[in-house]
Simulated scan of single mutants.
Amino acid sequence: MFTAIKTFSQVCTHMSIAFGLAYLLTGSLALGGLAAIIEPIINVGLLPWHEKAWHAIRRRYAASRVGFAALAGEKLSQTALHMGVAFSVMYWATGSMAFGGLLAVVEPICNVIVLPFHDRLWEKFRFRLENRGAARLAAL
């Protein structure tokens, strides 16, 4: 249950970043909302296929030196996928390559900066919950 709530919180954080940036770029609540909804949905839809393909690549080269390079390639590919989706959604919504390009660069950077803090907060929360549970068991 904890993991599901944390994941939902990550999605909300991601959507908030997408909305905030799209709104700042365009000044439109509608386009901000569109970016916040469509961009994460497309990413969520494409990511399992991306992971499945890279899982097969990593498994194939796991015993060789290419295994580490495959992991690095996967992360670079995932970043490119994310940037491509962000660009495509903003370009489709505004018709502006400049807005699309700016969102494609800035939005992933914001996610890379914000989400580790998000995860750290959730790990502290998990630690507190586990300590409370252990204290309750010890009191019994």
Rank of each mutant, 00 (worst) to 15 (best):
G20I: 12
L34N: 03
R59E: 11
M1H: 12
L121G: 12
A104Y: 06
S77D: 10
S77M: 05
A22Y: 04
H118W: 11
S28D: 03
Q10E: 09
M83T: 03
E74Y: 07
L21I: 15
A139H: 14
I109K: 00
M97S: 15
L129H: 12
C12G: 08
R136L: 14
L137Q: 11
F68H: 10
F2S: 05
I41K: 06
V11Y: 04
M97C: 12
R132Q: 11
F8D: 09
L115Q: 14
V85N: 02
E107Y: 09
A63N: 02
M1A: 13
V112G: 03
K6M: 13
A135K: 15
I42S: 07
R59P: 00
W49N: 13
A4H: 06
L47K: 15
A104F: 07
A135Q: 12
L25M: 12
M83D: 00
T79A: 04
S77Y: 06
A135Y: 09
N111S: 03
P108S: 03
F87E: 01
S28C: 07
V85E: 01
A104G: 06
P116E: 03
G33D: 08
L71R: 09
V44T: 14
L29R: 06
A22N: 03
L129M: 14
E74D: 10
R60V: 02
A18S: 13
A30T: 04
T13N: 11
G33I: 02
K6A: 15
G27Y: 10
A69Y: 08
L31W: 11
I37M: 11
I42N: 07
V106E: 00
I41H: 02
E39V: 02
L46V: 10
Q78V: 07
G20R: 04
R60Q: 09
G67Q: 06
G45I: 07
R120P: 00
T79G: 00
F87H: 08
L137W: 08
F19D: 02
L24E: 10
A62G: 01
T94M: 00
P116Q: 11
